[in-house]
Amino acid sequence: MKQKNVVRSLFVALLIAAFPLAALAEVNLLNVSYDPTREFYQDFNASFARYWQKKSGETVVVKQSHGGSGKQARAVIDGLGAAVVTLALAYDIDEIHDKAKLIPENWQKRLPNNSSPYTSTIVFLVRKGNPKHIKDWNDLVKPGISVITPNPKTSGGARWNYLAAWAYALKQKGGNEAKAKEFVTRLYKNVPVLDSGARGSTNTFVQRGLGDVLLAWENEAFLAVNELGKDKFEIVVPSVSILAEPPVTVVDKVVDKKGTRKVAEEYLKYLYTPEGQELAAKHYYRPTDKKVAARYARVFPKVKLVTIDGEFGGWRKAQKTHFADGGVFDQIYAPGK
């Protein structure tokens, strides 16, 4: 009887001792990302966990957090312990340096391609058969066309939309700043609803049946067509669009405190490997790896793409000129116009 008790208590003691050991062998990472990457990172995290288990024997569990890009950046600034951030635009990550000094200023130089392992662009989603014959940006400013796009002041994706339209106007014959401003003003006069985020706009267009054309992330447009039926929507690729680079970085202060720098860096590097690139392409992000890109060339149409650095002098400048309070976008809606 007594012996049985001893055995039992030993067993319990063993269990208690083993518990923290099990916890030690498991590494936790938090990836703070933006809205449309949810499905991609689910697949990617599983793939990385297998890779890392094989390589180091450690079990890594990557937790995901998704939301509007700006909101996510603010959460990290306010202390959400993100090991890595993978956001919609560099400006939001810049703020993590500016406001909280969690990362060095040159963070974007640390990984290839401006720290953007995959890219995307802005395309049009129109209703089946393209009843309003929308082919390019200049069709969007015609009277009677209703354009759905979110509010650039609250949505990262919407800023890419706006800048792509601006870039198109600049590239036209005799295009200049004043003409571009007039062009986007006319464009936004055709916008009946400004949702606060990209998914909200997709819903307005798809579920509520509002608008003739939706300006969308390429991956969101593919998702809408493939999930909701090829018989309902078509993708139209404009003559000029913008190269959207959603960048990634390790959050230095967090990984150094938790001692997870190595695995976090490996996690981001894995995004650049053929496996990671393949997964990105499967989820309709344009891969940067040449070989993978060649394999998916059929999926992604060739577009003339301008870059934010080349055309707008970087995000900080674009943000200040166009989207800050009193900037060009606010002037479009200034009273008396």
Binding site: N151, T154, L194, Y333
Partner: peptide
């Protein structure tokens, strides 16, 4: 609909300002 000057409520403006890190 969130159109400036027409259907933009004050809480949305607050969120807008936060979105600009203001």
């Amino acid at each position: 609909g969130n159109m400036p000057m027409v259907s933009e409520i004050t809480p949305l403006l607050i969120i807008t300002k936060l979105e600009q890190y203001d």
